[in-house]
Simulated assay, not measured.
Amino acid sequence: MYKFVNKKTAVVVFIVDILGSLAFFLLYALMPWRLRRRGKVPSDPKSILVIRADYIGDVILALPAIEALKKKYPDAKITFLTSAKAKDLLTGNPFIDNTLAYDPPWFFKRPLKLAILEYALIFKQIRGNGFSLALDLRGDMRNIFFLTFLTGIPYRISFASSGGWYLLTKVLKYPPGLHEAQYHMEVVKAAGAIDTGINPPRIFISPGEEAFVQEFLKSNGLNRNEPLIAFHPGARKKLKQWPLENYAALGRTLRDDYKAHIAITGSADEAGLAKDLSNMIGAGAFSCAGKFPSLKHLAAFYKSCALYVGCSTGPTHLASAVGAPTVVICGPESVERWAPLGENSVLVKKEVPCRPCVGREDVCLFPESNCLKILTLDDVLQAVRTQLSRLNITPQPQ
């Protein structure tokens, strides 16, 4: 089963699969001993490569599966190949022995020359590690071909949901309707891991990162007796962003009713957006976009907040993973597939027939009933008040 929304892409992959299958049937006819690996897993793999080389939220949702894999093979060296932005999230994780950073040009646009140089480097690194088993958690034919097959890893497990079943030694059926973390778990289960349920991912924050945040709070004069609430208004795709004026109205209400400080987070590229929102809220709001040295410092900051509010994006998963009470403003994404795993998350959404987005989260085909524009201030404020009341944070006398 292909998971493509675009029918043209599915047709192209189907044709490639037919040609690839014919080529590999010929290969197996000439080298039949290769068939011995089909459907099998090494009984005691010494070195395992796990691939999820794309976005921050995806990597966070892969962490429970990595933990299950390490518990199955405690003596194996587990290497996580991930994107450069997500790599620092993995430092200090006792279930990961090594990390490789790579931004595949099929996910992250690159000039051709740079893409070739970077691929040559990662190819050499993978070959040099002598992996006996590779798990591609995404089920992407390009990952499978370039990062596991061409690099000569003998056992390769993944879904064939984007084609390339013949490149794998163990092919998994792609069951629709699962949470993304469960898809990851299905892959490691096929490698022998025990599915103990999808537990919240864990980010291992160091004392130094905690100390940095405490100094940051002190230097900004934040009163620990007044609630600190983080807003993250940005997203990789603009269609997933709740209108900025709604965030501003929400921030002013929380400042006036709860005497809350509003911290607006974002990457350095989102500093302008964060500054605009800070100005729209006025007193009590400040931008800290781009001010944290790493994602783990940002995680430590979220951990210190009374509440986090944001859309379905990487920092939302990060805040949830460190236990921050979270309000998720759900947009065009599949809520069932991408909801944060933290126990303190409240999802705010309006049911629309086009979710998950039939426009692939790029263009809204139904602007008159846009899933985020019809989410009102009162809808989100009600969820925020619910979370604050659970923390015994109540409105203050005017």
Score class of each variant (00 low, 15 high):
G164E: 05
L172S: 12
I153F: 03
Y166G: 05
Y155H: 15
K173M: 00
I153K: 03
I153P: 07
L168H: 12
K173G: 06
G163A: 03
W165C: 06
F159G: 12
I153W: 03
I153G: 10
S162I: 00
Y174T: 11
Y183W: 06
G164L: 00
W165H: 10
S158Y: 05
L167Q: 15
E180P: 02
F159Y: 14
G152W: 01
Y155W: 15
S162R: 09
P176K: 15
Y174E: 10
M185L: 05
G164H: 03
S161H: 11
M185G: 06
A160N: 05
T169A: 01
Y174H: 15
V188T: 07
W165F: 04
K173R: 08
S158G: 11
K173F: 00
L167W: 15
V171H: 03
F159A: 10
S161T: 10
T169V: 02
Y155A: 04
K170T: 06
V188N: 10
S161E: 08
I153R: 07
E186Q: 09
Q182D: 07
E180L: 10
F159E: 13
V171W: 00
P176L: 10
S161M: 07
A181H: 13
L168Q: 12
S161L: 02
H179Y: 04
T169N: 01
H179G: 07
L178A: 11
Y166D: 07
A181D: 12
L168S: 11
K170V: 01
S161R: 15
K173T: 01
T169M: 01
F159W: 06
I153D: 03
P175T: 08
P175R: 14
Y174D: 14
Q182A: 07
Q182V: 01
G177K: 14
Y174I: 04
E186K: 12
L168Y: 10
K170G: 06
G177N: 13
A181P: 12
E180F: 02
M185E: 06
K170Y: 04
V171T: 04
Y166W: 10
H179S: 09
Q182H: 04
V187I: 08
F159K: 13
H184C: 03
Y174G: 11
Y166Q: 13
L178V: 09
E186I: 01
R156V: 08
S158C: 05
G177D: 13
M185H: 08
L178F: 13
Q182N: 06
F159H: 12
E186D: 10
H184E: 00
G177V: 06
P154A: 08
P175H: 10
E180N: 11
I153L: 06
P175F: 03
G164A: 03
A160F: 00
V188A: 05
L172P: 08
